[in-house]
Amino acid sequence: MASIIDIKEECALHVRDFEFTYKGSSAPSLKKVTMPIARHSITALIGPSGCGKTTLLRSFNRMHDLYPGNSYGGEIEFEGRNILTPKEDLIQLRTKIGMIFQKPTAFPMSIFDNVAYGMRLQGIKNKTELNDRVEKALKDAAIWKEVSDRLKHDANGLSGGQQQRLCIARAIAVEPEVLLFDEPTSALDPISTQGIEKLVIELKERVSIIIVTHNMQQAARVSDYTGFMYLGELIELGQTEELFVTPKEKLTQEYITGKFG
């Protein structure tokens, strides 16, 4: 039986009996996952590869819908409704729940246009408003100083760490409620990684964050809550400190002490 902490604070998302099955697969990849996500805090998802942590993360913004044939079960509650219903407006949902990927994904356009992209999609055309919000987003993503004099340059000229911060700026520019991070530092060097981690912690003042990481130290450094997943199930969700120091489940203990994975 899983050991799931009861979160007292307000929740941004609530996963209940969630199941996910990939196209053509007979067994679900995620089984009966129930998990509260605390608001304005950082929840990390850890577990060996193939445990389903990225699959769960990509369910929050219905990314799986890009590939037909996948199916959801159970519910994920966000802003008082179940977002897994067919009538859910995915465009709206994705502007509320942003995502950062394993690798920097600078679009083939200028730095400015990258950050402005999401806002333009929402129909913001006013130059001053765009300028202001792009500047603010870049400042919030701690990259303004490095790029303020070359906003019109191609974003692909930036370093990997800079590009990843640019992607964060792009995601926060549309003022989402939740940000999903899918192993955001796996392609970065240690110094860039440090910068991103610092940024993630600062961001939780304004957004709720879920971060998938293959790096247990990273989970321990940045998160408030940690969920340990194994073979498609959430084994344990607890406050990060407790989970790493006094895990309630035997599997969790074996994993964090390096017995497998």
């Binding site: 913004n61 990314m63 890009l66 465009i91 709206q92 994705r94 502007t95 942003g98 995502m99 990927f101 394993q102 690798k103 994904t105 679009f107 992209y117 999401g118 999609l121 929402q122 992607c167 792009r170 995601a171 549309v174």
Partner: peptide, 15 residues
């Protein structure tokens, strides 16, 4: 075009 780049645009609410 890498899938991840397309997904990033979908993740911002692109059609």
């Amino acid at each position: 075009t890498p899938d991840i780049l397309k997904e990033s645009a979908y993740a911002l609410g692109g059609t």
